[in-house]
Design a protein around this nucleic acid. Structure first.
Length: 465
RNA sequence: GGCGUCGUGGCCAAGUGGUAAGGCAAGGGUCUGCAAAAUCCUCAUCAGGGGUUCAAAUCCCCUCGACGCCUCCA
C-alpha cells in the first residue's frame, strides 16, 4: 500500500489514482534563462525517483514537466545579450535537457512551453472572466480576483487577512484587491507579445501551468509536484485558477521537495550561491548527486557540501562493490549458502518496497540495498561463482535502477587494457620473486594513473578508479 | 508579525506509542608479503522542561534553536 504525504492536507495518505493504474503527474519545471543548478537537479531527481517507483509498482505514468520560456527575467536577459527571448529560452531548454540526461533523469512524457500554449491560455482567462473570477484592468492587465474564490489559501494555509497584515504588498492602482495576481500582462513597448482580447501582452506566471495541465492531462490530475518554495504563491494560485475554471478538484496529491542548502542557506538564483549542474558533473559522477538525494528525505532540506558529497560518493562505491564479478576461487557455495543468498534476495525486495511505499522513504530503500550488498559480498568471499551470484546481482541492479542509480564502473578507453594486463603479469612474476619494493612501485604508479589493483590469493584484479 | 517544516551518536540520516535502521568517520579482528577491497566486532536513549499513558524519540503544552514561504525562485 503506497502512501504519500499530501501538502494540501498535511497528512500522509493512501495513494489512489483517478483511473486505475494510470498516474497523471505534473511537475513544475524551470524558467530557462541561464544554467540550471544542483537545486533544480534535486527537484528533477526527486520526481524522477517517484516516477520510476510508480512505474516499478505497475503504474503507467504520464509525466509532464513544463518550461517557462516567457517571463520578465528571460526578457531582460535577452535584452542584455541582444538576443530574441524565445531563442534564448530555446537554447537553455536544450541545455537543461542535456543536464537531465546526464543526471540519468528519464525524459518526461511531454514538455509543454508557454509560448506554444498561448491560445489556450487566452481561452482559459476568458473563461475565468466569464465566471466572474477575473477582470480586465484599464491598463491592459487581467487579474485574478482572490476574493471570488472561497477556498483561496487552502494549500499554503494562509488567510487573506493575515497576508495583508504583514504587508509588503504594494497595492497596484489597477488591482481591486492587493493579493489579486496577473493572468495577463500588458506588453511594454517593443516587448515580446501576443494579441489578445485585452490588447498585446503575455501570460502571467501562474496561468501557464493551469492551462498546460488542462491541455496535457485534463481537468483533474493525480500528482502535482515542485519545490516547496512554489507552494505560495505559485501553486496556490494555480489551484485557484484551475478549480475556479473547471469547478472540480484539481490535483489529488500535492508533493513538494525540500530545498538544497548550501552553507545553511537555500541555493537560489537570486541569492547567487549557485553550483551549476555542469560544474557539479565536471567533478563528480551523476550517481553521487542522486545518492545525496536518496540518503535524505525528499521533503526535508538537503545539505550540499564536501562532507555530504564525499559520503555520498563512498556510498555509491559501496553499492558498486556488490556488482563486482566472482573471484577466481575454486570454491563454490554450498546448498545452505545458496539458500541464504536466495532468502536475502527476497527480503531485500520486501524491505525495499516497504520503505518506498512509505512516502518514498529512499533512505530506507538504500539501507535495504546496503544490507543486501553484504550478503552478496559475503557470498563472493565464500567463493560463489558468477552463476551463483547472478540472480542476486540482477535483483540488486534492478532495485538500484528503480532509484535511477547506474552503478557503472569507470571505463577507460580500452586502448590501455592490454598494457595494463601486461604490467599485472610482470608484477605477478616480480611478486613470485618477492621483490616487494618493485611490486609496490608498480601498484603505486598505476594508482596515480587511476588504475586500482587488488591482490588476493586467487590472483590480481584491477579496475579504473 | 503570519503560515509551515524541523531539531536522533563526531558527521549524513531512517524510525512517529512498546525499550533506537543504514552509511561515513573512528578503534579493534579476519584476509594480505604489505596494501586495497570485502567481512566481523565496538561506538547514541533521541534540543531542553512539563504533561498524558502500563509504556513516548514517537501524542499534548511551553521554552530555545534552525530552515522555508509571505517578492522572482526547484
Amino acid at each position: 500500500m503506497l502512501k504519500i504525504y499530501n501538502t494540501l492536507t498535511r497528512k500522509t495518505e493512501e495513494f489512489q489514482t483517478l483511473e486505475p493504474k494510470l498516474v497523471k503527474m505534473y511537475v513544475c519545471g524551470v524558467t530557462v534563462y541561464n544554467d540550471a543548478h544542483v537545486g533544480h537537479a534535486m527537484s528533477a531527481l526527486v520526481f524522477d525517483i517517484i516516477r520510476r517507483y510508480l512505474e516499478y509498482r505497475g503504474y503507467t505514468v504520464k509525466h509532464v514537466m513544463n518550461y517557462t520560456d516567457v517571463d520578465d527575467k528571460i526578457i531582460s536577459r535577452a535584452k542584455q545579450l541582444g538576443e530574441e527571448p524565445l531563442k534564448l529560452s530555446k537554447r537553455y531548454i536544450q541545455d537543461y535537457a542535456r543536464d537531465l540526461k546526464a543526471l540519468n533523469v528519464l525524459p518526461a512524457t511531454s514538455n509543454p512551453q508557454v509560448s506554444t500554449t498561448i491560445p489556450l491560455i487566452i481561452q482559459f482567462i476568458e473563461g475565468l472572466i466569464e465566471k466572474g473570477h477575473a477582470y480586465a484592468a484599464s491598463n491592459g492587465d487581467v487579474y485574478f480576483s482572490v476574493t471570488s474564490d472561497d477556498d483561496y489559501g487552502k494549500l499554503s494555509g494562509r488567510k487573506l487577512d493575515d497576508m495583508q497584515a504583514g504587508s509588503r504588498i504594494e497595492v497596484g492602482e489597477s488591482k481591486t484587491h492587493p493579493m489579486d495576481f496577473a493572468l495577463w500582462k500588458a506588453a511594454k513597448e517593443s516587448e515580446i507579445s501576443w494579441d489578445s482580447p485585452w490588447g498585446k501582452g503575455r501570460p502571467g506566471w501562474h496561468i501557464e501551468c493551469s492551462a498546460m495541465n488542462l491541455a496535457e492531462l485534463g481537468e483533474q490530475i493525480d500528482i502535482h509536484g515542485g519545490g516547496n518554495d512554489l507552494i505560495f504563491p505559485h501553486h496556490e494560485n494555480e489551484i485557484a485558477q484551475s478549480e475556479c475554471y473547471t469547478g472540480k478538484n484539481f490535483s489529488r496529491y500535492w508533493v513538494h521537495n525540500g530545498m538544497l542548502q548550501l552553507s545553511g542557506e537555500k541555493m537560489s538564483k537570486s541569492l547567487g550561491n549557485i553550483v551549476s549542474i555542469k560544474e557539479f558533473l565536471s567533478k563528480r559522477e551523476a550517481d553521487v548527486m542522486r545518492m545525496l538525494v536518496l540518503n535524505g528525505t525528499y521533503r526535508a532540506p538537503l545539505l550540499f557540501n564536501d562532507d555530504t558529497l564525499d559520503a555520498a560518493q563512498k556510498n555509491v562505491e559501496r553499492l558498486k562493490s556488490a556488482l563486482r564479478p566472482a573471484s577466481a576461487s575454486e570454491n563454490r557455495l554450498n546448498a545452505e549458502e545458496i539458500s541464504a543468498l536466495a532468502s536475502a534476495n527476497e527480503s531485500a525486495k520486501a524491505s525495499f518496497t516497504e520503505a518506498m511505499d512509505n512516502d518514498f522513504n529512499t533512505a530506507g530503500a538504500i539501507a535495504a540495498l546496503f544490507e543486501f550488498s553484504k550478503f552478496i559480498n559475503t557470498a563472493r568471499d565464500h567463493g560463489a561463482t558468477d552463476e551463483q551470484l547472478k540472480s542476486a546481482q540482477s535483483t540488486f541492479r534492478e532495485l538500484a535502477g528503480v532509484l535511477g542509480l547506474k552503478l557503472e564502473e569507470k571505463q577507460g578507453s580500452g586502448d590501455a587494457d592490454a598494457f595494463i594486463n601486461l604490467l599485472i603479469e610482470v608484477r605477478a612474476e616480480v611478486r613470485k620473486q618477492k621483490l616487494w619494493a618493485l611490486s609496490d612501485q608498480i601498484r603505486d604508479k598505476l594508482k596515480e594513473l587511476n588504475v586500482t589493483i587488488e591482490d588476493s590469493k586467487d590472483g590480481t584484479k584491477w579496475r579504473y578508479s
